[in-house]
């Protein structure tokens, strides 16, 4: 029970956007600390809403978002951002903003309103650029980079924030395979070597099973299954969440489950039917 009190989670949270009713209702979720968690589910199932809720962007209509046993509402916006960093989906930098300037924005929660740029700020920016292999691109405008470099620049900004919990909204979407593996490998290293907690919305079940420690399957704003990849990725669960018939194979290297759609198993739009 003490474990439940630490780290980030939600208690009976209901979240939505003004009109149109709640996207998720009475959801409870505990993010395992110092682990890589992947949120999986079809488009519109509420993954991004959950991530934004965990980052404190939306105040729950009911329930609460909890960090180390306390509601995040007790924390100021900057104090929360020092603990929890968010990589937004399809963020676009203003024309002409350089990589260096973007990454420096990551220091926002560490700086007083009229404070000077400090040595600690400089170190955090340098380290973030180095870890994402973006040091050489410092003076390049973000809008002149390729998709993979651009994503790495945004990740560098989030790393410069030095929060121990990182929330990433579809960090691999629109990247080619090499860059996807690149980003996922970086997340893995942050967890293994620096003790970070990573939560990412992913679409590729094979990659999620290969890189994440903990999977959360979501459909219609509800958690269908959660746990280690090997126990969560079953044909029944995948059918229930995505409406796709799959066979589960085993990766000969890591024994991670590989989800393979069946040729004859035509997708059905309504898995409950």
């Amino acid at each position: 029970m003490t474990e439940r009190l630490y780290g980030l989670g939600m208690r009976d949270a209901t979240l939505g956007y003004g009109r149109g009713g709640p996207v998720i209702e009475d959801l409870s979720l505990t993010i395992p600390s110092r682990r890589f968690t992947a949120l999986l589910g079809p488009n519109g199932c509420g993954k991004s809403t959950i991530l934004h809720g965990l980052a404190g962007l939306h105040t729950p209509q009911c329930g609460e978002v909890v960090l180390d046993g306390k509601s995040i509402r007790a924390l100021g916006t900057k104090a929360l951002a020092r603990r929890v960093g968010l990589l937004a989906q399809t963020a676009s930098a203003p024309d002409g903003l350089t990589v260096g300037e973007l990454v420096r924005q990551g220091r926002y929660p560490h700086r007083p309103v009229f404070g000077a740029w400090s040595g600690a700020d400089e170190d955090a920016v340098e380290s973030a650029l180095r870890r994402t292999s973006m040091t050489g691109y410092r003076d390049r405008p973000v809008d002149s980079l390729s998709g993979g470099q651009r994503q790495r620049a945004w990740i560098a900004m989030t790393l410069a924030q030095q929060s121990d919990i990182l929330l990433l909204d579809e960090p691999t979407t629109y990247l080619d395979l090499a860059h996807q593996i690149d980003v996922l490998g970086l997340m893995r290293r942050l967890v293994d070597q620096e003790g970070a907690t990573v939560v990412a919305v992913l679409h590729d079940l094979v990659q999620a099973a290969r890189y994440a420690d903990h999977l959360v399957l979501i459909r219609g704003g509800r958690i269908v299954a959660q746990g280690a990849p090997i126990s969560v990725l079953t044909p029944e669960n995948v059918k229930a969440v995505f409406g796709v018939d799959v066979v589960i194979l085993s990766d000969p290297d890591s024994a991670a489950p590989i989800c393979l759609p069946r040729c004859n198993g035509a997708a059905t739009s309504n898995p409950q039917a």
Partner: peptide
């Protein structure tokens, strides 16, 4: 400096802890 953070869009600015 606040306007630079603001110009990244509301999701990013709030993620950085801007009130």
């Amino acid at each position: 400096g606040q306007f630079t953070a603001m110009s990244l869009g509301s999701t990013v600015a709030r993620g950085l802890g801007q009130n």
